[in-house]
Simulated scan of single mutants.
Amino acid sequence: SSALRFLFGAAMLVYLEWRLAVVSLVILPGMVLAVRFFSRRMRVLSHQGMEQQAQVSRRMQESLSATSLIKAYSSEKRTVSQIMSELEEALQISLEGVSVGSLANLTIGILPEISRAIVLIAGAYWIILGEWTLGSLLAFQSYLGYVYGPAHYLANAGLQVQGALAALERVSALFDIVPEETGTGFPVQRLHGEIEFRDVSFSYDSQEPVLENVSCRVQSGENVAIVGPSGVGKTTLISLLLRFYQPTIGEIWFDGRPACEYELSSLRQRIGYVSQSTLLLS
């Protein structure tokens, strides 16, 4: 019905005055460009907002679950400062999203009004010259609603759906995760202990690399300590050894054989692992 309303309105505009109809219809591509421009920005902001809200929830859960540890080290002020920083960033993203949405609605709403003003000025001038009638001008203004009404509705719908698309991208990322392959590969009876990283790179988000071009070899019986500040990839390195994640680039070898050729469960059974987080399973 909206499409028929739009086509009927456009036809009547051309019938009443084709010159003003051309001016009025030229506004529509401008609305399309405005929607495309603001939609991309709103989708990015919606995605960033959801990621930041997840970060805030993670920080809150982490702090509440480690209350005794935080008190033991007198880290209350530092923890509160971190939580407030995360909340401020989430608020900043939210305010930016509201600003962009308001500007988008203002732009989409003002374009039809510019067209109506042009029609009113030109129509009034032609009426004074006797080239047009007041009834035709009023009818033309009325049929503008037939054209701009559906266009404005579609533009608003296109903007509002960006939040849903951002959420869908986050859900789709879960379905893109490849499940672990168990029960296939070479079963591990014993490991001699030789480990080799061959140009291993890894990133959690496919944008910022955590490890980049790591190459090293650990001989059997050799003791190696990996030290560094928080966030440099020490835990990630061990997670790659246990094949919790797959390297983005490169390979990890055990005893002269790529790790991907071993049966996963038997490989993990031959690796001693002490987690950095304390957890007792009943």
Rank of each mutant, 00 (worst) to 15 (best):
Q276E: 05
Q219W: 08
I249V: 02
R78V: 00
I127Q: 00
R19G: 06
V147P: 10
E222L: 10
T79A: 10
L237Y: 01
V274G: 09
V119C: 00
I252R: 01
L20K: 06
S63D: 10
G145Y: 07
S99R: 15
V32L: 12
E88Q: 15
E169W: 06
Y143H: 13
W126I: 00
S203R: 12
A117P: 05
L138M: 07
P209R: 14
Q246Y: 10
I128W: 10
L211F: 02
V147T: 06
G221Y: 09
L20Y: 04
R198K: 07
V44D: 14
T278N: 13
Y146T: 06
G123R: 05
L154I: 06
L20F: 04
I70H: 08
S94M: 09
P29K: 07
V227Y: 13
D176R: 14
I195H: 04
Q189E: 02
P258W: 06
S265V: 15
L111Y: 01
Y73D: 12
G193D: 01
V22A: 02
G130Y: 00
Q189P: 00
Q189R: 05
S24Q: 02
V26Y: 07
E194P: 11
G9V: 01
T236L: 03
L264F: 02
T278V: 14
S265F: 14
Q207V: 11
R58Y: 05
Q61Y: 00
L281I: 13
Y15R: 12
L165E: 14
V14P: 03
R59I: 00
G135C: 05
R116W: 03
Q82A: 15
G145M: 10
A21F: 00
N156Y: 06
Q48H: 03
S230T: 03
P247A: 02
S24K: 00
T107S: 13
S57P: 05
G97H: 12
M50V: 06
T79L: 09
G185K: 08
Q82G: 15
T67R: 15
L28V: 14
I127D: 00
E194K: 15
S57T: 07
I271L: 06
E89C: 07
S1Q: 11
T182Y: 14
A66G: 09
V224L: 14
V147W: 02
T67L: 15
F244A: 00
R36V: 01
A157L: 15
V188E: 13
G233E: 05
R270P: 02
L168E: 13
L45S: 13
V232Y: 12
L267N: 05
I27W: 01
L281G: 09
I70G: 07
G250R: 10
R36K: 05
R41L: 11
R40S: 12
L240R: 04
L267R: 08
Y143L: 11
L13G: 11
N223C: 08
L64H: 01
S85T: 08
V200W: 03
Q82Y: 12
G135R: 03
L237E: 02
A34M: 11
A66K: 10
L281M: 13
V56P: 08
R58Q: 09
T236Q: 02
